[in-house]
């Protein structure tokens, strides 16, 4: 009796994500049936069929790859710059006084405003990378600034007394503290960078990008394709975030 209860629980635990997915797909399908017009809301099957079509297009993987590369470029730039600025702000109060208001402005400015403003000066590629960068920078800066404020003074004093090298201070004091602030910032940044990147691609009609194809599909009133491309965006975002999570947790150990 006990063994069967345990195995049932185990099966339910494994099957639960699939059941949840099935539930939401059913809701979608029912809504699509109720609307009854694929221009407004395509059904699950229409979307999957459109997905089958776009995956077979020769430009599909190239566009996905280019979008992914631009997100990565924006992410890397944002993480490096955010980290550098956080260290400089922590070290020099004058730098902090200058940088803090700028970060507040970046955080408060709607992403669409940035896209429209920067589109005047920059090419599609540069624009989308810069947009991803601008989304990542404040998150990394804020989290690392908070982390740096919590660095134990007691341990840095112990490091002074025992004349520990800079490398060992980083490994023993800074890294363990900052990791718990940096890693969540990276994971949050990935989702945000990805979303803002695609938004910028759509508005700026960036060549060889997912955004370009979403824009085209919308132009040709091909709503199932818009949904199919959105499914691609969501799936890659989830995979990207999970991959990063796994990599970061392995690295932190």
């Amino acid at each position: 009796m006990r063994a069967s209860t345990i195995s049932l629980k185990k099966i339910l635990r494994i099957a639960r994500p699939a059941l949840v997915l099935l539930f939401w797909l059913s809701v979608w399908e029912l809504l699509a049936l109720a609307v009854g017009n694929s221009y407004f809301l395509p059904s699950v099957f229409e979307t999957l069929s459109a997905l089958g079509v776009i995956i077979r297009k020769e430009y599909f993987w190239g566009s996905v790859l280019m979008t992914l590369l631009r997100v990565c470029a924006g992410l890397v730039l944002g993480i490096i710059s955010g980290a550098l600025l956080a260290f400089l702000c922590n070290r020099f109060s004058a730098v902090n006084a200058v940088v803090s208001p700028l970060i507040s402005v970046i955080k408060a400015t709607p992403v669409a405003t940035f896209i429209v403003l920067l589109w005047i000066f920059l090419s599609g590629n540069q624009l989308t990378i810069l947009i991803a960068f601008l989304m990542v920078l404040p998150i990394v800066w804020q989290n690392l600034s908070d982390g740096l404020r919590t660095i134990s003074r007691e341990l840095t004093e112990a490091a002074d007394v025992f004349e520990l090298s800079r490398k060992r201070r980083i490994r023993l004091i800074y890294f363990p503290t900052l990791v718990s602030y940096l890693f969540p910032a990276i994971v949050t940044s990935i989702g945000l960078a990805w979303k803002s990147e695609v938004a910028a691609e759509i508005i700026a009609y960036t060549k060889n990008s997912i955004g370009q194809h979403i824009n085209d599909s919308k132009y040709f009133m091909d709503t199932p394709s818009v949904f199919a491309w959105t499914v691609v965006v969501v799936l890659i975002s989830i995979l990207f975030e999970r991959g990063a999570r796994a990599l970061l947790s392995r690295w932190s150990k």
Binding site: E154, A158, V161, F162, E163, L164, R168, L172, P176
Partner: peptide
């Protein structure tokens, strides 16, 4: 140069007892 045994110990969390001493 001084050596110091702090009242609050101030050991490094990521190191073992042995590593904390041999550092």
């Amino acid at each position: 140069r001084v050596s110091y045994a702090f009242q609050e110990h101030r050991l490094f969390d990521t190191l073992s007892a042995l590593e904390n001493v041999s550092l």
